[in-house]
Amino acid sequence: MSATTMTSVPRRRGNTGIALTRRAGMVFVLPALILFGVFIAYPLLTALSYSFFGWTGIVRGDFVGLENYLTLFTKLPYSEDIPNAFVHNVLLFVGAMLFQNTVGLGLATLLHRVRRFKRFFQTMYTLPYLVSPLVIGYLWSLMLSPLFGPVNAVLRTIGLGDVAQPWLGNPQTAIWVVVFVTAWQWIGFPVLLYGAALGGIPEEIEEAASLDGASAWQRFRSITLPMLVPAIGTVSVLTFIGAMEAFPIPYALGGSQGNPAGATDVLSLLFYRTAFESGSSNAIGTSSAIATLLFLFIFGISMLITWLMRRAERKLF
């Protein structure tokens, strides 16, 4: 938007249909630009610059180049925590993607066919999405408590006592609880997005296909799914960002240390610990390095997903 405005010469009546002088254009862009600069660009650049310095408390020391970044990969606890946390972030992403593109898409397709109670079900599925993830996390940790939690109690009453587990105490199950709760909370989002995308597919196409003798599966496979690619792309990118910066649910379920024994640790928790709970006087330097890496990674991969999805779209149409 800003690019079009800025490059447009005074008399040009291009696709905008509005004639603006460059100066007038700047004036319109300025408020947004200032907000963007103060609240987004400036903190980002400061964090970036912080990561290249040594710190004693809040006093900035010497320029240390990439030393803070090296620390992250060579020194304990970071060299062990980062890969561990990163794997959990990836699990969160994969789990959420699987859940949303199967259950989410399935629900959206079903809801698309249903006429009665459609709004009601849409609202129901979206409700968890509207509650603070911290609250969701605490509610689930109460439900899964091995002492007082209803989940194990129900399992025992129906004769499945062997399945009852200290869900959040066992490292093998704890991370999957985090994955499940995250996916569970987010499910309303793909249901809404896919629902809207499904509504946007012209009925004539499907009608024509069914007249030509295409089965229901063939119609879904060759018409509905390709038409959904843009929506799948959007959901993928947003899920990726959400999974990489996951904080409230892991925090509520496993605390800032990613209990038990680091089994639910994620990168944002590591950042939080380093920045606000660490006894190290170089906390600012190290945590800024983590934040910068995380940003670059999220940004890069998001761009990649977007590019891949665009390419897939172009092939389709």
């Binding site: 910066e245 944002s268 950042f271 945590s287």
Partner: peptide, 21 residues
Amino acid sequence: MRRRILASAALLAGSALLLSA
């Protein structure tokens, strides 16, 4: 979308700024 990416990453990165802000 990009703005969201930036905004969310900036939230993280910006936390460091909170120390002085």
